[in-house]
Design a protein around this nucleic acid. Sequence first.
DNA 1: CACCCCTA
Length: 807
Amino acid sequence: MDKQDSLDLFAEQGKFMKGKHLVTIFHNEQNLYTVLRIRVEETNEQYDDKEAVITGYFPKVHEQETYTFFGEVKEHPKFGAQFHATHFRKDLPQSKQGIISYLSSDLFKGIGKKTAEKIVETLGEKAIAKIIDNPSVLDQIPKLAPEKAKDLYDSLMEHQGLEQVMVALNEYGFGPQLSMKIYQVYKEQAIEVIQNNPYKLVEDIEGIGFGRADELGSQLGLTGNHPDRIKAACLYTLENSSIQGGHVYMEAESLLVDVKKLLEDNQNFEIEFTEISQEIIKLGEEGKLISEEQKIYLPSLYYSEKGLVAKVKKILDQTEYENQFPESEFLLALGNLEERLNVQYAPSQKDAIQTALMSPMMILTGGPGTGKTTVIKGIVELYGELHGCSLDPRDYKKEEPYPFLLAAPTGRAAKRMTESTGLPAVTIHRLLRWNGAEGFEYNEDQPLEGKILIIDETSMVDIWLAYQLFKSLPDNIQVIMVGDEDQLPSVGPGQVLKDLLDSGRIPTVRLTDIYRQAEGSSIIELAHQIKKGLLPADISVQKSDRSFIQCTTNQIPQVVEKVVASAKKKGYSPKNIQVLAPMYRGPAGIDRLNELLQTLFNPNADGTRKELAFGDIKYRIGDKVLQLVNQPEANVFNGDMGEVIAIFYAKENVEKQDQLIVSFDGIEVTYNRPELSQITHAYCCSVHKSQGSEFPIVVLPVVKSYYRMLRRNLIYTAITRSKQFLILIGEEDALKMGIERGQDKERNTTLVEKLVEMLPEWSGNRIDSKILPDVNRKNYMGIVKNADPMIGMGNLTPYDFMEENEA
DNA sequence: CACCCCTA
């Protein structure tokens, strides 16, 4: 089998598009993300245009060369149809004439037409494959100097290197996706690196764990207590603890224990602790990990904490905000604003706005419904008023940058920020111009321009991103961080918001009064208890707005069905009633509940309705669906919910594609079949996905089979999604266990101690917001967006949703 | 066992 044939290993299945490269529209040097246009020569896609846009991760693609791309056509909301390629192959010229013009082209210095002809005469139509296989065949070419032969071979390798490496990696058992990643890092040296030290892959390639590398290692004879093996196990264990457990460091002792276990579990060979600590010391000397007082860090995490603290200090050192305008001026402007917006701020909200404007940095924290959004709106409005600057970005020229930077860790939180303030807000990644693979355009060398930064949903910001953001800030900026420390912690390592608050070094305003719920809400009371780790004694007692129905895991589906059916009968739609669960699988998992709820809300009893099947899901018109990825161009984001409004089969439309049309509050998005993986049913969704949303009725099953997921902040996040009714279903034991679990699994961080060491204590006066003057509560709600009116509640209680269940 | 960010 020669190389050209073996390359066809990758062509075995799927769609391809072959054509000549016309122009590269975009190429990211860092991560190789490439957008290019080709003239289509051949394809098995339904594609009528003569030209096509290809996207994917490619090393340099040469102009005028012909390539075959493998992948699928996808619809981009702004740029239209494009072919997303997972891998590609450069087509070697097939005809003698083709090879001659290829070899005599500019790609091969010093090879003219004459020499090219000679090569083909001597080696035949498979000349290129033969040379790649064994460069010494070039010795047969008359009058070809050895240096030229070497140049030719090197150039060929450079152009064909990717394919070479891909084939070899395939033999090591790596698929095209992972192979491409490996190639991006090591280029033509990939195979050499793997043969020398396969454990290096653990360090360099995301997605290759110790287990995989150790398999290669033992094939290559690097076994037992080989230093490379031990080192890799150390780094892997540390990385794992930060990615899986959210820790910023590991105690040296537990690192030793975990590493020993990993090494011995994988191969039957006893490892001494001293052997491990020796390698840890060496890794320290190589700068691959950092140890301080028996705490072992990955360098990126250590420097993130350190750098964040240094920058926070710099920002807090600014003194010019405190007395920039007299308090009387602030109060006057605040009064005008209240009149203009027809709202009245509570004392704690006024305090928050004032502290934000008069301090270099502030944290605004509080649970759902405490008016954080209202305060953000107040801050930007008043900032504009007091500084006499417009809130409209269009009023700014290039030399006078827009002063307001609004950002959030998720697309959806940014979208909400835009809606509630009327100002542009983006994800933190977009703000910093992220270009994939470790590239942020903004950093310490090229800082952002702006005067005031507001970050919402700060609880979701991990230590890496926090550092990246702060180091990209100018020194003369005001920073306001908004969030709820009791919600789910960030996906990435650290607990930045909680640590900043716990340090007591940052000006902070806590909002505690709830303006969104009815007065005397027992849901809020429950939330407060859960925050303290307590399960109220009256949990099983029926309240006006919450209830608890006891049942086992296996009864969950039928009880959920009864409760929801009862709500449906009372006129609630799927939009108003949200079932939340922590996990997808299992008899009480999201998948099972979605199936059942679809049958309840949107059945197809006689089988005559139009359906589009994707995997295990059958979509019907009227289905409630959840968006799983961001589509900023369409203003639709991960976590948004919508409704299926149309289904087209391939034979019914010009695109010849199965299509699903979903409406997200009026925004219509079309999903071709391949894009259906971007949505799922939403009758029941995960607690994680519900973060940032609220619903009139929340139905929350809690059973011991969710064991791994049950934690205090998960339960807190889930129950605080409900605005009117909360119906808990399941086992009291499980609920109790979940609420009590939280403290013991704290994340290892040293941010608090670093802040405390570097910064003076903040001695701001906190307004006790319990002492509220008697003002009209309705007015507080005035500018809270989405404070949808209670939907014809009358005197309903959760009990009304379960009357049939009493037997 | 679940979750974030994305380049014209």
